[in-house]
Design a protein around this nucleic acid. Structure first.
Lengths: 110, 110
DNA sequence: CTATATACATAATTCACTTATGTATTGACC
DNA sequence: GGTCAATACATAAGTGAATTATGTATATAG
């Protein structure tokens, strides 16, 4: 598991990118996908996940669709047109940040 | 300039590594070195820098030496033995985090 | 003689997160 | 048929690393 400190500021980027790559998903599904993709190194907590999804929706980057699965509620999230654009920007920003950090820390990734 | 959000959690790592690479330095010098190394993309604020240096010193990772430059005070910081070890760990942890993030975000660095 | 750079420091505030808690359904195991 | 774990949502309280603001003081350039 990674020090949660480093994760700060990356959650929105993760959510946007995962939704971009995997289409509409519901919250719990996102946690599982991220867990899988990261080899259990990134475990999203619900207390961070849901408020962030709500925030991204309020900002118009995500749109929702509520589906009843039997008696159970599922809330699907998908990128809006604007969300797709921002997702791209955020990932690029992250890559740029990594490059800067690599230089400052004098480390070589890969 | 990078979104300051991404920087969270990386400040200690930056300070420890810069001190490891450049030997004893004083606060202001560190800000200048990081600015230079990052091509002005990383600008450390004093409000973050000094409390973090004090904290690392309190934890025994840094030791200090006060030098008078004419009438001006300079406080030099250097890694302790333990600090050198932790510096190495933190950088390794960061590299590991980047690798995980690269997989999750499906991006290729370099 | 004034603005900028150098050099330290701390207090108030912000805000993204963790931790804790709550509700409810579904499935597996025995 | 009872219990535990997994599924699935949500919010509130608390934490802590940062920003922003402020303060002090010396040195230098124009």
């Amino acid at each position: 598991m990674h020090s949660p400190e480093l994760l700060k500021g990356t959650l929105q980027t993760i959510l946007l990118k995962v939704l971009k790559d995997h289409g509409k998903m519901y919250g719990y599904e996102i946690t599982q996908r991220v867990k899988e993709l990261s080899g259990s190194r990134l475990l999203l907590t619900e207390g961070a996940l849901y408020p962030t999804l709500h925030k991204l929706e309020a900002e118009g980057l995500l749109k929702t669709e509520i589906v009843m699965m039997g008696k159970r509620v599922r809330k699907y999230y998908a990128l809006t047109f604007q969300g797709r654009s921002i997702a791209k920007d955020r990932v690029a920003e992250f890559v740029d940040f990594i490059k800067t950090m690599s230089t400052v820390l004098q480390v070589h990734i890969n």
